[in-house]
Design a protein around this nucleic acid. Structure first.
Lengths: 333, 333
DNA sequence: CTGTTAGCGCCTTCAG
DNA sequence: CTGAAGGCGCTAACAG
């Protein structure tokens, strides 16, 4: 375990010079710098991040707050961010947050701010405690998903996306359009599914169709939730002619269950989802796709830019476009 | 940003006492400990990891080397490991490794060993440089997947799994059994797909069937690779009656392509995969399932146990069971 | 261009 | 049970 002192001694310079040489700081002659570099490689020396974090106050790492790392949406965001982060020379700390256990993010600003130079918070819940905690964070913060006032964010327009989905079905002649999504037990007001539903309702109303509340059934963002949602909708006295699921994963569950019950898609019922899941094409699923990996990249890039320029910027909200992808699960009413 | 000195002053004790009190070390009176704790909470004090890493040499973090975070297998491993890691109070650093770019792991032992107390290496390639680097690592290392001599590992028996898959098809009367997997361009000898194929061949031979090399077509571990693989197999003069894909994802691609070309599964051709992907049931996919999340948990637990007990243990290899899951994509020949 | 001198914030002997 | 002193490995301000 050679330290900076050993290296300095072996080259015949002071530790300070080694530090300057290796970090590319000015004020070192080319020959000295080269000698130091060569010796560092030869001895396998790398500065200890912990040790240099002390005087500089910079850890050279960013933290990522993730609710469910195993869900496609988050995995893909992290994947997008990771490339940018590692290319910028930062390490990435992954922090699970407690939504999975029915509780919202548990952001412990104190430890975190001593561990990382910046924070990427995915799908932050719009509850005051959580948002306040995020704003209290001393280093730059970027969120992906629901907007937190005073914090930079990358997102899509869920209301618009919902409208687009409904417009597609309406143009196919559907009027009894159901929605599978939203969680009545959610005490934290996570807005994604509700926003998408709002967009749907807006579109219906704009076409003179009154939204039927019975056609809205709850569903978490998992495949399994689609099974139950389909059953509830299909057992209704007046069935829908089309189902919009709050995510592609839910839609996949809907399709599965429909198939099992002998319901033909799209002849008996159209189905569509949101997100543009990598596998949705396997099901021929019509969807409102969003650039998930790209959002991860953009958020990470913004974060890194903020960390570089210490000047505090006006919080900005970057909204990325969504796109209707028509496949074979939607058809005429 | 209150430090340990401020806290100590506010309680009226020395920094040393604060340190002992907060870390639960013996030699502090209950009353003092409580007073310190209360003050810490009140002032929002948490010890800086960087600062305490310096004297102790422990960073309180573990590193995870991941080739492709967005692939289901790795995501699920990380998910399993994460719970264990965070519950043990460690932070998790995610390191992308360069396999994606056609290069093997680039393990920079030097930085890493100053950043983390332990390493979880997923799907390490069996090339000497990489394995040597892993063994050189000073802190505990656990791998998941291919075994590295001298390093603890968690894995499954891929040869056995392959044999099981083939046995299932043979028992259904199949003799022309194809395999979609393996990468001829792989210069690093990643053994998973080859091992599975070896198991298949063993089973065939045990039943007096000579493996036909033309029935083995390459496929990376992605859905898209299944398309091409199916086409190549189905355009053969003598078609197979069953296809074993090296992973469920490849199998999904095979199914998609088969469906597109009007090939009925399993009437015209049986299809099965490996891994037990969360979504494989949606396709009725028969598979050899492995406990992926559990492997992540077990590997993380082993790693943490090693970090706790400084005593070096004999490297062990934990092999987890696989299981045939019969669904509807396999049937009589 | 380079070395010297102080810390960064915490932990850990060793006294008391 | 508690405090004082020294050091972990590196960086930063100041000399030279």
């Amino acid at each position: 375990m050679s330290g900076i002192v050993d290296l300095a001694a072996s080259v015949g310079v002071s530790p300070a010079t080694v530090s300057r040489a290796l970090r590319g700081l000015p004020g070192v002659s080319d020959s000295t710098r080269e000698a130091v570099r060569a010796a560092a490689v030869r001895m396998g020396y790398v500065a200890s991040p912990s040790a240099s974090a002390l005087p500089t106050g910079r850890t050279n790492a960013i933290g990522v707050l993730v609710p469910w790392i195993s869900r496609w949406f988050f995995t893909t965001l992290v994947d997008g961010a990771q490339k940018v982060v590692s290319e910028a020379g930062y390490d990435m700390l992954l922090y699970p947050v407690g939504i999975a256990s029915g509780k919202p993010h548990r952001i412990d600003t104190r430890v975190l701010s001593k561990r990382v130079d910046g924070l990427l918070a995915l799908s932050v819940h719009p509850i005051p405690e959580e948002q306040a905690e995020l704003r209290r964070f001393r280093s730059p913060v970027v969120t992906v998903g629901p907007v937190t006032a005073g914090v930079h964010s990358v997102n899509i327009d869920d209301v618009f996306a919902g409208r687009d989905a409904a417009e597609h079905l309406i143009s196919l002649g559907h009027t009894r359009i159901a929605f599978a999504g939203g969680d009545p037990a959610d005490k934290f007001g996570f807005p994604v599914a509700p926003d998408r539903y709002t967009g749907i309702c807006n579109a219906l109303l704009a076409h003179g169709i009154t939204p039927d509340p019975r056609l809205q059934v709850p569903a978490e963002f998992v495949v399994g939730a689609g099974h139950l949602a389909f059953d509830r909708l299909w057992d209704l006295p007046e069935r829908p002619t089309a189902i919009i699921a709050a995510s592609d994963e839910i839609a996949m569950g809907v399709l599965y269950r429909a198939h099992l019950r002998g319901v033909r898609v799209p002849e008996d019922c159209s189905v569509m989802g949101f997100d543009g899941h990598d596998m949705s094409y396997l099901f021929g699923l019509t969807t409102i796709s969003q650039p998930v990996r790209e959002q991860g990249r953009v958020a990470a890039a913004l974060l890194i830019e903020m960390m570089a320029s210490s000047a505090a910027q006006e919080p900005q909200s970057i909204t990325m476009p969504t796109q209707l992808v028509v496949r074979s699960t939607t058809g005429p009413a």
